[in-house]
Amino acid sequence: MIVPRRLLLTVLGILMFFTLVTVGAAQLEQAIAHQFDIVIPQWVNVAVALSIAAVKTLFVMAIFMQLRWDNPFNSLIMVFTVFTLCFFLGFIMIDLGNRDSIYPYKSKYIVEGGSGNITVAGGSVPAGTSIAMQARIWAMEKADNILIKEKGTLPKYLVIFCSQEIERQLAAKKTEAEFPPVLKEFMKVRNQAPYAEILAAASHGHGKGHSAGGNTANRSRSRTGLTDPELGGKPADGHGHSGSAGQAEKPATAGEPKAGEHK
C-alpha cells in the first residue's frame, strides 16, 4: 500500500493542530484557574494531555506507520504492549497510593530531599544535610564569591536566590544584623540595575501564590490513595489540607529554619 502524499500532508496538519491544542489547553487551564481563582484538579491536566497525545499517536500509527493496511497481528502486538503498560503502571499506582500504614515507619529515616553523606563531583554532602539544602549552601558560597570577592555581577538565578533567601531569613525571625555578609551586600545593591529589573520580572512571572518561603513541601503527597479528591490538585497557596495520617508524621518544612542554621 502506497500512502498518497496528500494523505501524509493531511495527517501532518492534524498532528500540528493537536500539538497546538495541547499547548493551548494547558494555557487555557492555567488562565481559567487564575481568572476565576479556582483549583482545577491535577487529573484534568493529565487526562487532557494524555488523551490528545493518544489521538496523535493513533494518527501516526494508523497512517504514517501504515498499521491501517498492515497485517492485523502487528496492531495486536501494540494492543498487548499497551495492556502490559497499563497493568505495569496501574498495579504499582494501586500499591503506592495505598501505603498509609507503613509510612510512619519509613518516615523516621527521611530527611527531606535526601540525607546526604555522599560524595559527588561538586563536593561532598555531609550526613544529615539534604541534597536540596546543600544546593542552597553552595549557592550562598557561590554568590559570596561573585559579589564580595570578585565584585562581579550575579547570574539571574542567584539574584532570585538571594532575594528569596532574605525573605526566608526574615521569616525565620532573623534580624538584618545576623544575615550572612553576602546578603547584607546584596541588600545594598538590589535596587540598582540590573538586579532591580530581574527581581521585578521574577515577581511578575512568579508572583501568583508562590510564597518565597519555599514551603510548598506542605503540599506534599497525601498517602490516602487514588480516590482522594485532593490528590495532586492542591491549591497553589497550599492552605486547607486535610491532615492525613501520613501528613502528621512529616518532619518540619525544610525551607525556612534550616537555611539559616547552616550558615
Partner: peptide
C-alpha cells in the same frame, strides 16, 4: 543518586521490587 529507589530523597525501595 537520582533518588527513585531512595526513601530519603522521596523515592521508594519497594518501587524497585515492583
Amino acid at each position: 543518586h537520582i533518588g527513585i529507589f531512595d526513601p530519603r530523597m522521596g523515592g521508594d525501595p519497594v518501587l524497585f521490587q515492583h
